[in-house]
Computed example of a mutant assay.
Amino acid sequence: MYLPTSAEKVIAFQQYVIGLHKGHDYLLSQMGSADETPVSFDEPSNNVIEEIGTKSVIIKTLGNEKMCITVMLAVLADGIKLPPYVILKRKTMLKDQLPTGIIVRCQNQGWMSTDLMKDWLNIVWNSRPGVLVHKRRMLVLRTLRGYLTPAMKNIIGAKNTALAVVPVGMSQLWVPDVAESKPVKECLSPSWLWHVIPL
């Protein structure tokens, strides 16, 4: 049995996306990619200053290394970022006032689920600018997601959205890791450091 190489998978995916775009003439504002990323409550620095040969190095943390939330980030092809969709690891919603500009939900494990994905499609994907005027749209997601079932793919299709799933192991095709997740975590790092080592 012949298995396609990584280069062939990349070319096939690119041809599929280009074919969708040419066939339906999507506006850039109606093409987007989305992915969830874990955000830790504590982010120890990778850099330390210590004498060469030191066998152990003490790193200050807030003690919350194992606590994290999940954030679904999405960006459109025209550069517009959709509101972050934050999933807290808890059963009930916080009573505190939450920041504006983000959507917050709760889930026992703090993960994206089928129900939350349906909610994200309704609250974020189907509420973006121009969605009512321009019916044709395309959404790029990464594969191997538990919520990306055949039923969910049908729901996405029913919302006039063509789905493009990035093949397994094709991280070089995955824009959100570089363009969204990394900058978000880099912006949060100074806040973590300020709590650990107040200026």
Rank of each mutant, 00 (worst) to 15 (best):
I58Y: 06
D42V: 03
T161Q: 01
L88P: 00
W194N: 14
Y2A: 02
L98C: 04
M93V: 08
N46H: 12
S40F: 15
L132A: 10
P84L: 06
S181C: 13
K66P: 02
H134E: 09
M93P: 01
G110S: 11
K182D: 11
P44R: 08
K60W: 06
K9M: 12
P150M: 05
Q97C: 09
K159Y: 11
L141H: 03
P84C: 02
P129N: 03
A162K: 12
S40G: 05
T54L: 08
I58E: 05
Y147I: 08
P198F: 11
L188I: 09
A74F: 01
R136Q: 13
K182T: 11
N126R: 05
L144A: 12
P84T: 00
D42L: 03
H134I: 03
M152G: 10
I123P: 00
G23P: 05
G23I: 06
M117S: 13
E180P: 02
Y16P: 00
A162R: 15
H21T: 12
M1R: 03
N160L: 10
I103A: 07
R128W: 06
L121T: 06
A158W: 11
T70S: 15
N46V: 07
L199G: 09
Q97G: 03
G32W: 01
L94F: 12
V39L: 13
M152F: 08
G169M: 02
G101P: 06
S33H: 00
M138V: 09
I52A: 04
A74W: 04
